Simulated assay, not measured.
Amino acid sequence: MQTTAGEEAIAVSVFIIAHDEADRIGRAIDSVAAFADEVVVIDSGSTDGTQEIARAHGARVVENAWPGYGPQKRFGEDQCRNDWIFNLDADEAATPALAAEIAGLARSGALARSPFWEVAIRDVFAHETAPAPWAYGYIQIRLYDRRVGRFSDSTVHDTVRPPKGARPARLRQPMEHRSIRSIAFQVEKMNRYSTAQVGDMAARGRRFARWRLVTEFPLAFLKAYVIRRYALYGWWGIVISVNFAYTRFLRVSKAYERELCEAAATPDRR
């Protein structure tokens, strides 16, 4: 379709990686209906009916055994029929305002003004229906032209890598992030993810300074409680600040444990 400005409408594919996300995948798919030319769900062996729910909400489901975050997202990029891609995770959703913003940009062809668009991703907890006004958020490129830049191939870090010197544009509206189903779920996730992070660090030859065993927890708590403004959540802010700090401490302690085991396996090591 040709617009009055002489720009062509741009078709946008959406892909979502998922594993046992039956309770959240429908919300994620429905949230992009206003602008998605297609939705592709990359499933890594769900056993809770995620695939069937995704299909019922209009997505195409592709099975792929889990290779790590970056490789799975690169696989997802390859399954899309369009070069313009919007990525969200199963625990995320485009707000109605964000979906309308992207739909307008796609219809007008204005997406082409930049090959990379950043979006603010804001926390929503299980007892909330929308992000709090002070909700912590981080900025990532999630809407992009895969011909110019793609996700990294890191098994731990799933980030779109633009070429050097690229200047992404910024979407005005936010995305919702419901990463914590419950405290029990968060504990399992932090344990699993910290182990993966330590493995990734070891593969790259990185180590933590041992003094961080002492400083990591208190400094991380202060970062969460003050800088991330978790204090504004009241008592709940204490809970999520402690959990954040413990997640950071787990990385350092597991890395140190790995060093001890490696030293024990090589007695001559100094």
Rank of each mutant, 00 (worst) to 15 (best):
K164R: 15
V252M: 11
F125Q: 07
Q79H: 03
A184H: 03
E8K: 14
F35A: 08
Q79R: 04
E38G: 06
S31P: 03
I85V: 12
A184G: 10
D268R: 11
F185K: 10
A106W: 02
F125H: 11
S253L: 15
A90G: 13
F185G: 15
Y230T: 03
A110E: 08
G76H: 04
Y256D: 14
R228F: 00
D145Y: 01
G149W: 06
C261H: 06
R74V: 04
A120G: 08
D91Y: 01
Q173I: 07
E118C: 06
L143T: 03
L232H: 08
P67I: 02
A59R: 04
R81E: 13
D91N: 10
P163E: 14
I17S: 04
N64L: 03
Y256W: 11
A263L: 09
Q2T: 15
L105M: 05
D78C: 05
V39Q: 00
W117A: 14
L213H: 07
G76S: 08
T155E: 09
Y144M: 09
N243G: 15
R212C: 12
Y233A: 12
Y225D: 10
A202I: 05
G58V: 03
Q197L: 11
G49C: 08
P96R: 03
A166W: 01
V62R: 05
D145P: 07
H177D: 07
F221E: 13
N243H: 15
R206M: 14
S46L: 04
Q197N: 09
W235K: 10
A59H: 05
R269W: 02
A132K: 01
D20E: 07
S108A: 13
G165N: 12
V148S: 08
R167F: 12
S154W: 02
T129H: 04
A231T: 01
T95H: 06
F244M: 13
A112G: 13
A220W: 00
S253M: 14
E128F: 04
E92C: 05
Y230N: 12
V156A: 07
E257A: 15
I53W: 01
D145T: 06
E21H: 08
W117M: 06
T4H: 11
W211L: 14
A224Q: 01
W66F: 14
E262L: 07
L98F: 00
Q197W: 06
S241I: 01
I141W: 00
A264Q: 06
G49S: 12
T195A: 15
A65N: 07
I102G: 10
E8H: 14
A203E: 10
A18T: 00
T50C: 03
V156N: 03
G58L: 02
N64C: 09
E92V: 01
I180Y: 06
S44I: 08
P115G: 15
V39S: 01
R172D: 09
V14D: 05
K73R: 15
R192W: 07
Y256H: 14
P218I: 10
A169Y: 00
E216H: 12
I10N: 13
A34P: 02
A184D: 11
Y193H: 14
N191R: 15
F35C: 07
V39I: 00
Y225F: 11
S13D: 05
E8W: 13
P71Q: 04
Q72T: 01
P267T: 09
G205S: 08
V252Q: 11
A97V: 01
